[in-house]
């Protein structure tokens, strides 16, 4: 039994290895890109449109609305990053219902990678919006004394992001595997459904927290930066 899909290695050469995490991620990337291309190649700008197009439009509009609700007034700038974050995690978690599938999000390497992306994206968008000076000054708010804590918070919350998602997904997979051994019928199905729900909630939480962090970094209202983020964090 593997604790992480990282341990399922298909090919290895030196430190380069092709494990289940990377392979499943590629598969998901292929599926998402192929599906998106297949659907968007026949897009209609008129009132009549296909159901698949309606589905994609609904997803895009909902994500945009969520980003906007959090406080980012120009959601289209953040949509590719935050939207992809949510979609990747959601889809990766969604396929847990398929037997034999190992979600890449069940790997701490993947969640750390995504958390690092958020960790980089927050100052990237913050500096892009406010400039170096104002962004860096935000670490001195409300009082310069809090600078170390602010810097620490940047790292801890990134770590929290990674561990939260990993823990939830790994535990779900682990519970399912253990239950399959104990009670092979019925109950694992229920737990599988629960894992699906948990996966969706975690995808939402991950994406919304990233949005909140970015919103806090780009917000003009400096006072609301940390409290806002702290309030949202579970």
């Amino acid at each position: 039994m593997h604790l992480s899909p990282d341990h399922i290695i298909f090919w290895e050469h030196g430190f380069v290895k092709l494990n289940a995490t990377i392979v499943y991620t590629w598969a998901l990337m292929l599926l998402l890109t192929g599906g998106a291309k297949a659907i968007t190649s026949r897009l209609s700008s008129r009132l009549g449109r296909s159901r698949w197009q309606s589905l994609l439009e609904t997803i895009v509009i909902t994500i945009q609305k969520q980003i906007n609700d959090v406080g980012l007034r120009q959601p289209r700038i953040y949509l590719p990053f935050l939207g992809t974050l949510f979609i990747l995690v959601a889809v990766a978690n969604f396929f847990v219902v398929i037997p034999g599938y190992e979600p890449p999000t069940g790997s701490l390497s993947t969640t750390v990678a995504l958390a690092i992306c958020v960790f980089v994206a927050v100052p990237f968008y913050g500096i892009r919006k406010q400039g170096w000076r104002r962004y860096l000054q935000s670490y001195l708010k409300p009082v310069p004394l809090l600078l170390p804590f602010n810097i620490l918070a940047e790292f801890t919350r990134t770590l929290a992001l990674a561990v939260r998602l990993f823990g939830n997904m790994m535990s779900g997979t682990m519970i399912l595997a253990i239950l399959l051994v104990i009670t092979p019928f019925i109950f694992p199905v229920v737990m599988s459904a629960l894992a699906l729900l948990t996966g969706m909630v975690q995808a939402y939480i991950f994406a919304i927290l990233a949005t909140v962090y970015i919103a806090a970094a780009t917000s003009d209202d400096e006072d609301s930066r940390e409290p806002h983020a702290a309030r949202r964090e579970p």
């Binding site: 991620t25 979609i87 990678a113």
Partner: peptide, 19 residues
């Protein structure tokens, strides 16, 4: 696994661009 982390970061960025 830091190689996997790096690969996943690249994968993610590629996915962002593709999507």
């Amino acid at each position: 696994d830091w190689f996997t982390v790096a690969a996943q970061i690249i994968n993610f960025l590629i996915l962002v661009w593709l999507l």
